[in-house]
Structures are given as C-alpha cells and as structure tokens.
C-alpha cells in the first residue's frame, strides 16, 4: 500500500494504482473523457489533469502513484486548462449531433460542456440521448439545431419545439447544417426567423448568426430550386 495525499487528504491505495484511483478513494472526482479502465488508458484527452506540487500537470488516469505523492485536483489553473482543452476538443467536433448513434445513451462531451459552460454544442444533441425523434421531421419549427445546449432539452422532451431561449450557437458549420436541415424538412423559414428573434435579438452575437442563416438559406434554397 502507498500513501497518497489528495487535496490534503491522505488515502492508501495499492501499489501499481494510478492517481485516479486515489482520487476516487479520497472521494473527489476529476472529469475523464478518453479513459475506460482496462480498455483505453492512453491519457490522450487531457481532461483528467491534476497538479503536482512542482506545478506540473499530469493525467490522473495514467500517472502511477508513489508514496507520499501530493496532488491537487482542483484549482483555478486546472479548471482553466480543462476548460480550454474541452474547447479545443469541441472546436474540431463535427457537431452532427442529430446523427449521433448514441440513441438513449450518454454524451460526456455534452456533460462537460454544461459543467464548464463551454458553448458550441446545439440542443439537438440531446434529443437522441433522450431517445426522442427529431421534431423537424414532424415539420415543427424547432430551433434545437442552433441553440446552445445545456438545458437538458426540457421542451423538446415534452414535444415542444425549441424556442432557443439559451441563445444561438455561433459556429458557422453548425449554422450551415441547421439551415440545410430546415430547408430539407420544409420548415417555414418565416416561422423560424420569428422564433430566432424571440429570444436572440438581444444577444450581441445575433447579427452575426442571423447573417449566416440568411446566407445559407439563400444558398440552399437556390439549390432546392
């Protein structure tokens, strides 16, 4: 057994464990994304970073314990780093959430995005997770495609199309897909515009978003004809 000090709290874990085991044993938690015990512990996602007394950040899922090891699981710096890493991950995420195969499953990215307040994932990521069918298919003017996720999609879960109360996603590719889908499903674009203006008109990023929406509407309406 080796003694590890997690946030000042001493715990004993068996030799050969990783820091994450000690953290769990001490009753703390760190976010992990790529880690699946025994299946994948390559420490690639860097979400589970913890801090050593010398200021080094190490991944808790792969860093071996040693006697007297002191680690910090939470600090301004760690939060900032994790948040930034998450932002980076989301920056390259395709965000074709409506196609996500995890129907009825879970999405750690979404959970972390909520936890860290990182915007970018649209509400429509949540429908498949709740096992819901897309409301657009029913012709409902749902703004879920364009709205920042994190609410848990209470409206679409009740069958009410999203009103976008959390504000618009600003990523261009997301907007493009959304507009494409809107047009594919023949949703009344005027309805959508009205909806967008309902909660978004006071958002500083709205103009940018709306311009993009119009741009892609033009593009895809043209294609349709």
């Amino acid at each position: 057994m080796v003694k590890v000090i997690v946030n000042g709290k001493e715990v004993e874990v068996s030799e050969g464990s990783v820091v994450l085991d000690a953290i769990k044993k001490a009753g703390y938690s760190v976010p992990t994304l790529c880690f699946f015990k025994g299946v994948y512990n390559e420490a690639a996602c860097r979400m589970c970073l913890v801090e050593l007394p010398n200021g080094k950040l190490v991944p808790s899922c792969a860093y071996p314990v040693s006697d007297g090891l002191k680690i910090t699981t939470d600090s301004e710096r760690l939060r900032k780093t994790r948040r930034m890493v998450l932002e980076l991950i989301l920056a390259v995420h395709k965000m074709k959430c409506y196609q996500c195969a995890r129907k009825g499953g879970f999405c750690l990215l979404l959970d972390f995005a909520k936890e860290f307040g990182v915007e970018g994932i649209p509400v429509c990521a949540e429908c498949p997770l709740h096992g819901e069918d897309c409301l657009l298919v029913k012709g409902e003017p749902c703004l879920g495609f364009l709205t920042i996720a994190g609410c848990g999609s209470p409206c679409t879960r009740e069958g009410t199309p999203c009103f976008g109360c959390r504000g618009p996603v600003t990523r261009e590719d997301v907007i493009e897909t959304a507009v494409k889908r809107f047009i594919e499903h023949g949703v009344d674009l005027r309805d959508l515009h009205s909806r967008m203006k309902l909660f978004w008109s006071s958002f500083p990023q709205f103009k940018h978003v709306f311009d993009l929406v119009l741009k892609y509407e033009k593009k895809y309406m043209g294609e349709k004809k």
Binding site: A44, C45, R46, M84, V85, L88, I89
Partner: peptide
C-alpha cells in the same frame, strides 16, 4: 495527433 492540446491547440 494523439492528444488534443497539441493537435488542435497548435493548429489554432
């Protein structure tokens, strides 16, 4: 390209 900070951060 294994870890995100380097792969994406450097690109950004």
């Amino acid at each position: 390209g294994k870890c995100f900070p380097c792969r994406i951060g450097m690109k950004i």
